[in-house]
């Protein structure tokens, strides 16, 4: 399948948040303000691409040759958790300002199911290394776009006079539902 198709499907047709329900917890938590969403988005793009490469290498050169497919889940999650913590410590030293901006999201990313989800989807779809990287970055961009759209809407929702029960997560979920309806429109245009 051509890379363009992968990119289009990953960002629009099969958006990781609206269609595949992955990464909803950080999505609801972080999309309160625009800059925080952008910060989280960049952190996710970076970690998702990095972990996609490492997980692909480990899967194809370590797990498959020794027929250890069942270790896939635990190996992937160990890699992701280790990578995130590594990035966190290195970033803290080399670039404290960026760390303060992104710092709080990094532990949040470890429990972000989107990253493990992408690693497993890559493996299930038997992508080669190029497709894996392209798919991971495209999905992360899709995640960031979803985050930014939501942040924009939620900043205006703050001013709307809404019953106190619906404020916060409830209204964001309903908004996400409507956005997901809109994203379904892209489905028929191009498929993998």
């Amino acid at each position: 399948m051509s890379l363009l198709a992968i990119i289009f499907v990953a960002i629009l047709a099969d958006n990781i948040v609206f269609n595949q329900f992955l990464g909803i917890c950080p999505y609801l938590g972080v999309s309160k303000r625009l800059e925080t969403s952008l910060g989280m988005g960049i952190a996710v793009i970076f970690v998702m691409a990095l972990s996609a490469i490492v997980t692909w290498v480990v899967y194809n050169f370590l797990l498959i040759p020794f027929d250890l497919g069942y270790l896939r889940t635990i190996a992937f999650i160990l890699i992701i958790a280790g990578l995130v913590q590594l990035v966190e410590t290195i970033l803290k030293k080399t670039n404290p300002t960026l760390f303060r901006a992104l710092g709080i999201y990094l532990p949040l990313i470890t429990t972000n199911c989107a990253i493990l989800g992408v690693a497993i989807l890559n493996v299930q779809a038997e992508h080669n290394i190029i497709e894996t990287i392209v798919y991971a970055i495209a999905v992360a961009i899709g995640f960031t776009i979803a985050l930014i759209i939501m942040a924009g809407i939620r900043e205006r929702l703050e001013l709307a006079d809404l019953s106190s029960h619906l404020r916060g997560a409830a209204v964001s979920l309903v908004t996400a539902g409507i956005l997901s309806l809109a994203f379904m429109g892209f489905k028929g245009i191009m498929t993998l």
Partner: peptide
Amino acid sequence: APGAFITLGVMLG
């Protein structure tokens, strides 16, 4: 998908 979001959102409210 959209149905899931909206149902859960309304239930949360």
